[in-house]
Computed example of a mutant assay.
Amino acid sequence: MSLDRRGFLFGAATVTAGGLLGYAGGHPAAARDAPRSPRPTGGWLADLADDTPVARLSLPGTQHSAVRFGGAQVARQRRTIAEQLDLGIRFLDIGCRSSHSAFAVHHGAVFQRVLFGEVLLACEAFLRARPSETVLLRLRLRQEHSTVPDAEFRRVFDLYQAGFRRLLRLDATLPTLGQARGRVVLLADHPKLPGVPYGDAALFDVQDDATAPPAVKYQKVERHLRKAAARPGKLYVNYVGTAVQGSPRANARYLNPRVHRFLTGPHGRRLTGLGVVAMDFPDATPALVHTIIRRNQRAATAAGAA
């Protein structure tokens, strides 16, 4: 690792002494006890045509992708970023605290024992091994546990941009798959950052009701899946999880299987072009991840026949 990379990857070592408890060598101490990942899906985008718009793909994703610590009411994932990518995840959702010229991944006040540079390193290693793939990354607008000015947030981001210049795709337009292969496509959910302007109504259609109870949230998710398939043109982003009326994990046990049943049932099995389907704990329902992935194969077959 170059000296400049080491500086901003680990420059947040003074984030807080309490926040860094259990943090050693750049890896969460709890990772040693993490269960084995399900069978990796590898480079599943390889067989799709380069001219396929990313907005027409069906992409399994995670919400609060690096939030693994803080107890049952906080944690949204069990797998590391590298394990999620191996599972087939191609959309990441990251919230950061700006501290000491680095971004520390947080959920509220809870440091998630990983720095933003380590998220990028995981993506870089994955894409180097599988150059046919791409990763869409939303860097959240709202700072987590920091309130630095926008100009300072941009200054820190520019350090990452310099260190990962070849990895990051910072164009303001949604790419084709060929343009995105081997790159992390930044969805710029911040007014001072480059990248595709996340949430721009001309480009995105987002369902992200974080206050809906599970039964209501499921209805919203299903409606958004139907809408994505019926009205192509934008990148649909569909957040499945909720932390209302139960822990995120308990709600994922309810929601993820229901979404899978819909997509494999009579009313959902023919839907393609689903956009991003971002989940809590997708490893608990790996069949849903594989079902979303297979929609791209079905769409490619239909396009070829046409």
Results as ranks from 00 to 15, higher is better:
133 E>R: 00
3 L>W: 03
197 P>D: 10
173 T>M: 03
137 L>V: 06
46 A>D: 15
164 F>D: 12
303 A>F: 04
159 L>N: 06
71 G>Y: 03
132 S>D: 14
86 D>G: 13
228 A>C: 00
63 Q>A: 02
299 A>L: 12
223 R>W: 13
167 L>E: 01
192 K>M: 08
17 A>G: 08
27 H>P: 03
69 F>M: 04
80 T>S: 11
248 P>G: 01
106 H>L: 05
2 S>A: 14
262 F>T: 13
148 V>K: 01
223 R>K: 14
107 H>S: 05
90 R>K: 14
72 A>L: 11
28 P>G: 12
208 D>E: 07
259 V>R: 02
127 L>Y: 15
165 R>P: 07
205 D>F: 05
132 S>F: 07
278 A>R: 00
123 C>G: 04
78 R>A: 09
84 Q>C: 04
135 V>T: 13
120 L>Q: 09
34 A>R: 10
238 N>A: 00
108 G>T: 08
273 G>N: 12
133 E>F: 01
200 D>C: 03
158 D>H: 10
68 R>S: 07
212 A>W: 14
15 V>D: 12
52 T>P: 05
31 A>L: 07
14 T>W: 08
17 A>R: 11
74 V>T: 07
270 R>L: 09
284 A>N: 02
255 L>R: 03
201 A>N: 05
301 T>R: 13
84 Q>V: 02
83 E>K: 01
240 V>D: 06
200 D>R: 09
232 P>H: 06
194 P>K: 07
138 R>Y: 01
300 A>D: 14
258 R>I: 02
156 V>Y: 08
101 S>W: 10
149 P>F: 00
261 R>G: 08
69 F>Y: 11
177 L>N: 08
6 R>V: 10
287 A>R: 14
55 A>P: 00
227 K>S: 03
3 L>M: 02
4 D>Y: 07
98 S>N: 10
287 A>G: 12
57 L>R: 11
154 R>E: 15
270 R>S: 15
206 V>Y: 05
153 F>L: 10
144 E>F: 02
271 L>D: 15
28 P>A: 12
141 L>S: 15
145 H>Y: 11
199 G>I: 08
86 D>K: 03
6 R>M: 10
204 F>L: 01
230 A>W: 06
199 G>D: 15
112 Q>M: 01
209 D>S: 14
80 T>K: 05
43 G>E: 12
70 G>I: 00
188 A>E: 13
263 L>K: 07
91 F>P: 06
279 M>A: 11
152 E>G: 11
113 R>N: 10
13 A>Q: 04
186 L>A: 06
94 I>Q: 09
190 H>Q: 12
24 A>R: 15
139 L>R: 00
24 A>K: 15
61 G>K: 04
260 H>W: 13
263 L>R: 04
306 A>E: 11
222 E>A: 13
62 T>K: 03
166 R>L: 12
49 A>M: 04
296 N>A: 12
263 L>I: 06
119 V>S: 01
201 A>S: 14
41 T>R: 11
109 A>M: 03
125 A>T: 08
159 L>H: 09
79 R>F: 09
223 R>N: 14
187 L>F: 13
77 Q>F: 01
77 Q>T: 00
286 P>C: 02
280 D>A: 06
260 H>E: 14
174 L>Q: 09
109 A>K: 01
248 P>N: 12
255 L>P: 00
205 D>H: 15
306 A>T: 10
33 D>W: 04
302 A>D: 08
282 P>V: 03
224 H>W: 02
54 V>I: 14
292 I>Q: 14
8 F>N: 05
281 F>P: 01
